[in-house]
Design a protein around this nucleic acid. Structure first.
Length: 426
RNA sequence: GUGGGCGUAGCCGAGUGGUCUAAGGCACCUGGUUGUGGCCCAGGAGAUCGCGGGUUCGAAUCCCGCCGUCCACCCCA
């Protein structure tokens, strides 16, 4: 940033990995957000908003030391008072912090929350991956039943359906809990110990730091090793196994198709049992549109009583990317209904007043002027205005307005007081 | 963080060492007489050729660094 200031030459640009949402994209954002709110409401979820930055400990303590998010992707800073803060890299921990802080354990359980939030990660950008992105997410805290897992997945599937996004596939896995995962990891390590020489360099690191990730490696040389690796779903403890079975039968009852993916692992350490992702049909690395899972130990890590929870995050930029790819139709944002033109400078004030009057009547009106009537009509056309109200000497003299219908070019005189009604019809 | 591609007006894009004080299209503005859109016609404005340095008599065109972007890895939404 200092560069531009020092040199005083380059123009400013949005920081790497960030972007501006321009009016052309507004319809998409409006549609996606509106749909998210509507579907969340249908499922009884209430809106929550947490700060964009908080005590870095919220994430340092919960996300896991070996994870990328904590190790190198957080925007960490110290404020003027010396507090160690971080830009929100992940929303679940924030929401859980709020749950604990506001004593939500004393509300009817589970507490169902949804949010629209920006997240920040210092990552190398590419298509579908940004340093700032927006997420629609949901958390159901306080109920460990598999039925809630199914509900959360159903909510996300309903959201996609309402958007008209087709062809997404749901990948599902269970990664066990504190009772059975450590034993599984031991098994996995034992298996890999004999195969490390056949794996890629990254996998040798994963073996040490994040063994579950071994299963997710895409290197071809590692595939045979992965294929022979023990599956966690075959080593779940009785409780986790029962939970996973209950979830699957719930999904089947809801007729939600899923694909069991024993290699599905999520990036944060706090996940337990259920993990899932929705993937679009297209190829590409940055493909996951939405994903989530259960986090039964997270509230405790944040100082609350042991409380189960489950949620998902859905990337809005990726959602919109997919809507565009599928050429989905999204509702257009309405063009102004009336363009108020004035044909003489004497009529300027009258135009101002007419515009005000229209708006008072709930009609969207854009004020023209400052150029020829021809130019104003051209302008009105470019804006897509349905009507042009013309005020000039003639109209002023009679207290009327010439109202032009831009669809067919028909125009007629209307008394000034009747313009709103004339234009509002239909 | 690693490897690679790309970077010419708001957008698309020609031009790859001199004829470039940079083509064309879209968009924008004005006009085509006297108060009227969309088509057409004419005109206009708009370019530090991403930024900085170097090579050369001469660079948008070659080299280096930086920035940005895209692709793959990594990671994830």
């Amino acid at each position: 940033m200092g560069r531009q200031e020092e040199e005083g030459k380059s123009r400013f640009q949005a920081p790497r990995g960030t972007s501006d949402v321009l009016p052309e994209d507004e319809p998409y954002w409006r549609f996606v957000r509106g749909t998210a709110e509507r579907v969340s409401g249908l499922f009884g979820y209430r809106y929550i908003e947490t700060p964009m930055f908080e005590d870095a400990g919220v994430w340092l303590r919960t996300s896991g030391e070996g994870t990328e998010v904590v190790e190198k992707e957080m925007y960490l800073f110290e404020d003027r008072g010396g507090d160690r803060l971080a830009l929100r890299p992940e929303t679940t921990a924030s929401v859980c912090r709020a749950y604990v802080e506001h004593g939500m354990a004393s509300r009817p359980q589970p507490v169902r929350l949804y949010y629209f939030a920006q997240k920040f990660r210092y990552d190398r950008p590419q298509a579908g991956r940004y340093r700032q992105h927006t997420e629609f997410g949901v958390e159901a805290i306080g109920d460990g039943e598999a039925a809630v897992d199914a509900e959360v997945i159903d909510l996300l599937a309903t959201f996609y359906q309402a958007l008209g996004l087709a062809g997404l596939s749901l990948h599902l896995n269970s990664i066990g809990d504190r009772a059975c995962r450590p034993a599984y990891i031991d098994h996995l390590r034992a298996y890999y110990r004999d195969h490390l020489s056949q794996t890629c360099a990254d996998c040798r690191l994963r073996y040490e730091k994040n063994p579950l990730r071994l299963l997710d490696c895409k290197q071809t040389q590692c595939q045979p090793v992965i294929a022979g690796a023990p599956a966690i779903t075959e080593r779940l403890c009785a409780d986790c196994d029962a939970h996973f079975r209950a979830l699957r039968s719930s999904l089947e009852a809801l007729e939600i198709e899923y694909e069991l993916d024993p290699h599905l692992v999520r990036g944060l350490d706090y996940y337990t049992r259920t993990v899932f992702e929705f993937l679009p049909p297209e190829e590409g690395a940055q493909s996951t549109v939405g994903g989530g899972g259960r986090y039964d130990g997270l509230i405790e890590l944040l100082g609350g009583r042991p409380t189960p929870g489950i949620g998902f995050g859905n990337g809005i930029e990726r959602t919109i990317l997919n809507l565009k790819r599928q050429k989905a139709l999204v509702p257009e944002v309405e063009a102004p209904r009336v363009y108020v033109a004035h044909a003489s400078s004497e009529a300027r004030v009258a135009a101002l007043r007419l515009a005000r009057r229209l708006r008072d009547g709930g009609v969207a009106a854009v004020l023209g002027g400052g150029r020829s009537l021809k130019a104003q009509l051209r302008h009105a056309d470019a804006l897509g205005a349905r009507y042009v109200a013309i005020l000039g000497e003639q109209e002023l003299a009679k207290g009327e307005v010439t109202l032009r219908d831009m669809r067919d070019g028909q125009q007629h005189s209307v008394a000034e007081g009747e313009v709103t009604a004339a234009v509002a019809a239909e």
